[in-house]
Design a protein around this nucleic acid. Structure first.
Length: 284
DNA sequence: GGGTTACCTTTATA
DNA sequence: ATATAAAGGTAAC
């Protein structure tokens, strides 16, 4: 078992980070978080300022968990009013993970119109059905299947995953990705608006899903996913600011406002607001 | 172009 | 219990 000592000025809350709905392959057992990041199984346990972990190098852990980011500086950069301030205080230590872009692409296609428990089940089915077995510290796990594995899957096998209408999106997306291995590199090199446009070429990827993939898989912090929860919160918390905007699609208006108002780390702010909108006041 | 609607399946709520 | 709405939306009309 290895240990990683957090720097005293770098807050981190593992529970919040892994359970906030940005990743769907983690489960907590006996105080340990067990998960598979792309093709790599690892387990992590937090004891105060120390992370105990197995299965990966320290460099992998630091990169995956975003421990190299200066969280205090990031939070300070958008802590501009009591609404976001309260969210920051209540969910302090949440970090955005750096996930595998391909896994992220499929995961958030699944996430449309679905509850988190349903999404978790879909991802587990996909990995369990099409993923290669890999040895994990706690037993045998399944890697997330690569594009080729999903592109060639049969209708029956796909139907077993209970993906609903998303099944077709996923196989068509897998075929596109398998035929275009450079897709992720192109997006990585593109600036935000162009990267989002590029992602939307995949079937099943609209503006919201594209923003999730950019935020959780590509570290594009300008991406500001607007789901039903964030929309409710933003409309309620910043009515005047939204009203001042020129007309256009609501999704674009909210995103543009957020980037303007919260700055370069708007997407980070989004995740704090997302948790706040779900744990704080209920709907309506 | 913006507003509506169907879409698979699961879970929560009435 | 059995029905109905809603769920980290998208594509088609």
């Amino acid at each position: 078992m290895k240990a990683y000592r957090l720097a005293p000025d770098q807050p981190f809350d593992l529970d919040r980070t892994l359970s906030c709905g940005q990743a769907f392959r983690w489960q907590k057992r006996d105080g340990w978080w067990e998960g598979v990041a792309g093709e790599t199984p690892l387990c992590i346990r937090q004891e105060g300022g120390t992370l105990l972990y197995e299965g990966v190098t320290e460099a992998f852990l630091v990169r995956y968990c975003g421990l190299d980011a200066d969280l205090c500086a990031i939070l300070a950069s958008f802590n501009r009013d009591p609404v976001i301030g309260r969210a920051i205080a209540r969910h302090h230590g949440l970090r955005l993970l750096r996930q595998d872009p391909w896994e992220c692409l499929i995961s958030f296609i699944c996430a449309q119109n679905a509850h988190i428990p349903f999404i978790t089940r879909m991802i587990a089915s996909i990995a369990g059905t099409f993923g290669e077995p890999v040895g994990a510290p706690w037993g045998t796990e399944r890697a997330f299947p690569d594009p080729k594995a999903l592109a060639g899957c049969s209708d029956d096998a796909l139907a077993c995953c209970r993906l609903g209408y998303r099944a077709r999106y996923i196989r068509d997306t897998a075929r596109m990705a398998a035929a275009d291995p450079g897709w992720a590199d192109r997006i990585r090199e593109a600036a935000y608006p162009e990267a989002a446009r590029e992602l939307r070429r995949f079937p099943g990827v609209g503006p919201k899903v594209a923003d999730c993939i950019l935020l959780f898989g590509f570290g594009q912090y300008e991406a500001f996913p607007v789901d039903v929860w964030i929309r409710r919160l933003m409309v309620r918390a910043y009515p005047a600011l939204l009203a001042d905007r020129p007309s256009g699609r609501e999704y674009e208006i909210i995103g543009a406002f957020a980037r303007d108002y919260f700055g370069a780390y708007a997407g980070y702010a989004q995740e704090y607001l997302f948790l706040e909108s779900r744990s704080g006041a209920g709907p309506e």
